[in-house]
Computed example of a mutant assay.
Amino acid sequence: MKVLILLAAGLLASTAAAAADGGPVTMRGLGIASCNQYLAVRKEQGITPNKATYNQWAQGFMTGLNVALYMKSQRYADLPDPDSMNQWLTTYCSANPGKPFHEAVSGLIAERSMPVDKPAAK
Rank of each mutant, 00 (worst) to 15 (best):
K2M: 11
V3Y: 13
V3W: 06
I5V: 09
L6K: 07
L7S: 08
L7W: 07
G10E: 01
G10C: 10
G10I: 04
G10D: 09
L12Q: 11
L12C: 15
A13N: 13
A13P: 08
A17T: 10
A17V: 15
A19Y: 11
A20N: 15
D21R: 14
D21K: 09
G22I: 01
G23M: 01
P24L: 11
M27A: 05
G29I: 02
G29Q: 01
L30Y: 03
A33Q: 06
S34F: 05
Q37G: 04
L39C: 03
V41A: 03
Q45T: 15
G46T: 03
T48V: 04
T48D: 08
P49K: 00
K51C: 00
T53V: 08
T53D: 02
Y54G: 01
Q56I: 12
Q56N: 10
G60I: 06
F61M: 03
F61R: 04
F61D: 02
M62V: 02
T63M: 09
V67T: 10
A68Q: 14
A68Y: 07
L69K: 11
Y70A: 13
Y70K: 06
Y70R: 14
M71H: 06
K72T: 10
S73K: 12
S73P: 02
S73G: 07
R75C: 13
R75H: 15
Y76V: 12
Y76F: 15
A77N: 10
D78Q: 13
L79H: 08
D81V: 05
P82I: 06
P82A: 05
M85E: 03
N86Q: 11
N86I: 00
N86A: 06
Q87I: 14
Q87Y: 02
W88I: 09
W88D: 02
W88Y: 12
T90N: 11
T91N: 15
Y92I: 14
S94C: 06
A95K: 12
A95N: 14
A95W: 03
A95C: 07
P97Q: 12
P97V: 13
K99Y: 03
K99S: 04
P100N: 10
F101Y: 00
H102M: 06
E103K: 07
E103W: 01
V105G: 00
V105T: 00
S106V: 00
G107I: 00
G107W: 01
L108S: 04
L108P: 00
L108H: 00
I109K: 03
I109A: 03
I109F: 00
A110C: 10
A110E: 13
E111D: 06
E111I: 01
R112F: 04
M114L: 15
M114E: 15
P115T: 13
D117Q: 11
D117G: 02
D117C: 09
K118D: 07
K118F: 04
K118C: 05
K122Y: 14
